[in-house]
Design a protein around this nucleic acid. Structure first.
Lengths: 345, 345
DNA sequence: CCCTAGCACTCTCAGGGGTAGACTGCTAAG
DNA sequence: CTTAGCAGTCTACCCCTGAGAGTGCTAGGG
């Protein structure tokens, strides 16, 4: 579709249709638009504009005598035409400011809180992807003997901790384990997590069976930490909000959405490639992985200094309050960037 | 309500109504019951029985000319009358056996897998509550200096790890920190987690401001571990299955359920007191915290040796396949007990 | 005394017509 | 280019009806 100038009145009309539809959930008629835009033209004129916008593929018609509904392309056009730096409601602004006013030290805790904040503020579901961790440094590794086996523990420079239980190899005595622990620590200390993974895989290759098992387990842990430390890699909040939305949605949309929310890898796919420079809005079928379901994702990355460390986003119906959501997500991402930068210093 | 003998035919009729209703979701008529029970009596006789069962409060009538549907009390009676040791389908049995055939070392990982297993097998949502941990022993504590502050790490005897970030108190140098770390370790090593918590709170009381902060943080971590180590205390699986059920449910039921699933404390309340000796079935409004929503919970504890360590459960509509769910939950809980006992040895 | 056949009765559900209302799209005039 | 006016179209709703499902009751039979 060729990018073409639309004329400010058409843009205005489209805006009115989208916002009214989002507000009421009902198809919007020419009369309503004429009143709401305040353009000072009659509904007949609006009807011509509406017909033109439909011709262009931005609006559609459930049936002859119904009002107009925006298409995905219509939402897209609407979002692209939005003035930069949208407004939040005061309550939203205050909620966000209040949340970040507390002193917080653990980024993972913060992110968990962030999902709740975003979902409360926007009334949709929200997700947060913690730092990918590949370029983090390994601060410490430990091999601890417990009653039930060996516990291998890895601590990252930012306080991320990951672990795995290993069956205790009988052929290794306490001394051998201590040596092994030191050898592992020497190999990975102050390396990045991806380097540490490569290093441990290499070490596993040329070691005895018992040692190999431990190095392999370590490599697994590092692999895990690359995605995000700890046991959950994607944080989610406000799913209950989607239950309300569910009434308007197709059945399979709801199910697929919940499935995606449950499986982290799917959720990561939903957000991958989709989180660009600043703020990204993905509408309905635009997303490569969502097929034709009627959900939109608004997401933004946050950074510590200049390296990208994670992302936050909101998932809701295509008929969502883009202005409010975009402003909220942008604000939260900016705050998170500040916080992450500060924690890093 | 007085517990009264019902007569085997009434029981049989009730059973038929419940099972047919669960299977089809439609109110059940006398004709259907007459055929399905194989009692060899006519539908007229069944009608008398149905009327009696309704009089007793076990069945209800959407309207005059509709069939019967079970009340909560009806499900209760049905469940209580079920022969012990219900049957699973072969596929269910196999799925469970297959899952536990693998060797597994980390109970938390196992529980995560368990929720997925149970939800796949039953087609409802499932939850797992990990060991409460109060009586676990503290295996190790560490105070690690990172770029961004101090990381306090606690490792439990079973491999549970919990942590908290603390702002580095400027007035403590490396040596003071080392002393503090040793002092903390001495106080809590090999104590139970509840003892450790009490101990740290005591230590916090009579310490300098900087030390107090650290002991207090430690107490927080122990407090956290009492509920369940790591960042999630209740594990959940198969929420997507509830989305399908949602069509049959009242709106607020769905929302409240999702909210409960999101807030761990609520979920713990749902399962607390509800998990008795063996297998517990809570039907609809029976549960003190669910108000009048139409959901049932089937749960069972699992133990390591003789101490109760956790619980698993399934959440679904009151019209659920109790036989299959009860058998599955019981089987999974038994397997988990075996595994937990073995890991403990 | 319990069971059963039969029947009148009740109530829902699906479908058909008929109407009001909501919008559109077109046309002709400003 | 805009607008008023108007015919045309389609849905949503209501009302009605008939079919069907299922009950409750009664009277007769083992």
């Amino acid at each position: 579709m060729v990018e073409r100038e639309l004329g400010t009145r058409k843009t205005e009309v489209l805006r009115a249709v989208v916002e009214e539809f989002v507000r009421t959930g009902e198809p919007v008629g020419s009369e309503t638009v004429a009143e709401r835009t305040g353009l000072g033209v009659s509904s007949a004129t609006i009807r011509n504009e509406l017909a033109a916008l439909e011709e262009l593929g931005y609006l559609s018609h459930p049936h002859t005598s119904a009002g107009r509904i925006p298409t995905d392309a219509g939402y897209r056009r609407y979002v692209d035409a939005l003035p930069p730096g949208g407004r939040m409601r005061d309550t939203q602004r205050r909620a966000i400011a209040g949340f970040f006013a507390e002193t917080m030290l653990d980024l993972e805790d913060v992110l968990k809180g962030t999902t709740q904040l975003l979902s409360r503020v926007t009334q949709y579901a929200s997700v947060a992807v913690p730092p990918s961790g590949s370029s983090e440094l390994v601060a410490r590794t430990e091999l601890i003997e417990l009653g039930s086996g060996l516990l291998l523990l890895v601590v990252g420079q930012r306080g991320q901790v990951d672990k795995v239980m290993i069956d205790r190899p009988d052929e290794l005595d306490a001394e051998a384990l201590a040596t092994l622990e030191r050898s592992l620590a020497d190999r990975v200390k102050d390396k990045t997590i991806s380097e540490a993974r490569a290093e441990t895989l290499k070490a596993a290759a040329g070691a005895s069976e018992a040692e190999r098992r431990i190095f392999a387990a370590a490599a697994d842990v590092f692999g895990d930490m690359q995605v995000g430390a700890g046991s959950h890699h994607v944080l989610i909040g406000g799913v209950a909000n989607l239950a309300d939305e569910a009434a308007h949605w197709r059945r399979d949309t709801v199910r697929r959405l919940f499935e995606a929310l449950e499986h982290e890898s799917e959720m990561l796919e939903l957000l991958r490639d989709v989180t660009a420079e600043d703020l990204t809005v993905t509408i309905g079928a635009e997303h490569p992985h969502t097929g034709d379901w009627e959900a939109s994702i608004v997401s933004a990355p946050f950074r510590a200094g200049s390296t990208e460390v994670g992302a936050v986003g909101v998932v809701g119906p295509t008929a969502m309050d883009y202005v409010g959501v975009m402003a909220s997500v942008r604000a939260v991402a900016r705050r998170l960037s500040e916080l992450a930068t500060e924690l890093d210093a």
